[in-house]
Write a protein that binds this DNA or RNA. Structure first.
Lengths: 135, 135
DNA sequence: GCATTGTTGAGAATGATTGTCATGCCGTCC
DNA sequence: GGACGGCATGACAATCATTCTCAACAATGC
């Protein structure tokens, strides 16, 4: 049984109002800043349970650190701004089709796939490149 | 300038004959087993340099550990068997088109993407599922 | 050969994540 | 309302991949 504790409520509430991907360490700090003391181990445990339950998405950045974010149920992908963290959820049917076609072509079964896009959003591009066009 | 040292040669030779993704720790152990003592730090440094140069591919497994593998030059994706590690390199033009279309739709620039497929190859499927069909 | 300078390696340091286990609190039953 | 059983918590230790440090080393150019 999943008990609804103060800690889990606090973390769920925090994720509800946090639009960007955050590490477990960051979430722990944010809770502390908000006066909600929640143990680091509890943050890790809870966030992992939520990931398994499909309530949050997990993203691994370049150095292997795990980032979490509240997400819509169901399979989808992301487009993330590497500057500000702004995230767009993608249905990505084209990717599903590609993955299943490749799997068939090579006689693979039970094929899962990961597909993430990382770029720079319009606002950050304007700020960084001074509004100039850039491919 | 890049000097050709005994250590780099040994690592390059090892990667040349290693078809599957291996962690830096594993590569270090394999070198030791082969009588080629190469420091762990050197393995990490060398493998990272090779990754930057595009001579090896990097793959992050679920727990964040980095795996390396000799690869063809140029951008491509992978289809990996989660049982035996068998790897197929994919040109994946469909993914490139999808990524660039999504980037345009959302006004993102400088968009990189990752896309990896993980499944079970025909041989392993036959071994595991007893040769029966399975989607 | 010899100097120059990038490279190596042993071990310490880092930092995220996980394990430990006594204590605490939620849900339940009375 | 109050007791109880057991999952949940948290402070801290432990783990483990990866990076750092820096003196000793060895390619390369001459």
């Amino acid at each position: 049984m999943q008990r609804m504790t103060r800690q889990r409520t606090a973390l769920a509430d925090l994720l509800e109002v946090t639009p960007d991907f955050r590490s477990a360490q960051q979430l722990h700090q944010l809770l502390k800043d908000a006066g909600q003391n929640v143990g680091l181990a509890t943050v890790y445990r809870t966030v992992q349970a939520m990931a398994e339950a499909g309530d949050v998405d997990v993203l691994r950045i370049e150095d292997g650190e795990a980032l979490y974010r509240r997400c819509a149920r169901g399979h989808h992908h992301h487009l993330v701004c590497r500057e500000c963290g702004k995230t767009v959820e993608l249905a990505g049917e084209a990717v599903e089709r590609w993955a299943s076609r490749i799997a068939q072509e090579h006689d693979f079964v039970d094929v899962d796939h990961t597909a993430e896009l990382v770029g720079i959003c319009r606002d950050c591009a304007a700020r960084i490149y001074g509004g100039g066009a850039r491919a």
